[in-house]
């Protein structure tokens, strides 16, 4: 906590403060105005009616479940990559690092097509899965795969940065005190990197929740099975715009609530210097 006097002494010159204040206000308004416009446009009655529509409930449930599973999978597979790339030197590291970023560059619809060409029933891998009787395209699993593919860079990038920012001496200290590499990782590295890990996980969750292009291509659009909120919103947009906007508002609020809850739950950890 800074005292009033500290704030008076440290606040810098007036023109700079005004400039910074203007930039901050513009940035915040830029994000808020479209959201407010969206909210004002949607009749409240429609919002509540939408919440009882089975199409909406199915989509909401499917979105939350798949985005959560995707987040867990990304954490499980992304953490080792993030840690190795933050800590180790090995030939081809830059390439691996770049590859993990690529899904961000790929337009989502292309990502979905690529997934079809890989795991579809005539795909590179999918044709063999198909022989074993495994069919992934147009299933809920395809929804999760699409989300994982598109959203993983957000976590890996963030986790890698926070791992890299931890002074190795803490890990060394733990090792000399008798902790195995794995124990060290979970008792020292993860707690010290937890802010980055969590914010990366939240970003991944949010991106998975909003995933549209790759999902529509790879998983298709079928209510209760592969129709997530963004798909339902896009679908409704073609017919009843108000209904679609109501869905969008619900999605924004649910995402907001989920992210806020995660932030509050981890508030304590942020006290660490």
């Amino acid at each position: 906590m800074t005292t009033l006097m500290e704030r008076i002494c440290m606040r810098g010159n007036l023109p700079l403060r005004i400039l910074v204040a203007i930039l901050v206000v513009i940035a915040v308004l830029f994000i808020c105005i479209p959201l407010v416009a969206l909210l004002l446009r949607v009749p409240q009655t429609l919002l509540f009616a939408s919440l009882q529509d089975p199409v909406v409930l199915d989509a909401l449930f499917l979105s939350l479940v798949t985005a959560s599973i995707s987040m867990v999978i990304v954490i499980g597979f992304g953490t080792p990559i993030a840690y190795i790339n933050a800590r180790c030197q090995y030939p081809g590291k830059k390439i691996i690092d770049t590859i993990t970023d690529l899904p961000v560059v790929l337009p989502p619809a292309v990502a979905g097509l690529a997934l079809l060409m890989a795991f579809g029933r005539r795909g590179l891998v999918g044709q063999y899965l198909n022989l074993m009787g495994i069919d992934i395209a147009f299933t809920t699993i395809a929804v999760i795969i699409a989300q994982v593919f598109v959203a993983s860079p957000f976590y890996i990038r963030q986790a890698r940065t926070s791992f890299a920012s931890i002074n190795r001496v803490y890990e060394h200290a733990a090792r000399t005190l008798g902790a195995s590499p794995l124990t060290t990782f979970f008792s020292i590295t993860v707690p010290l990197a937890i802010n980055g890990i969590l914010s990366g996980a939240v970003m991944t969750f949010a991106r998975a929740l909003g995933e549209f292009g790759a999902t529509i291509m790879f998983a298709g659009n079928l209510q209760g099975k592969t129709q997530t909120m963004p798909l339902a919103i896009y679908g409704a947009l073609q017919g009843d715009m108000d209904a679609s906007l109501a869905l969008a508002v619900i999605l924004v609020f649910i995402s907001f609530a989920v992210i806020i809850v995660i932030k509050i739950l981890t508030e304590k950890e942020e006290a660490v210097p």
Binding site: A109, I216, M217, A219, G220, N221, L222, L231, G235
Partner: peptide
């Protein structure tokens, strides 16, 4: 029906 596509391109 395995997918109800919202765009003909899909």
């Amino acid at each position: 029906v395995v997918s109800e596509d919202p765009a003909v391109t899909a």
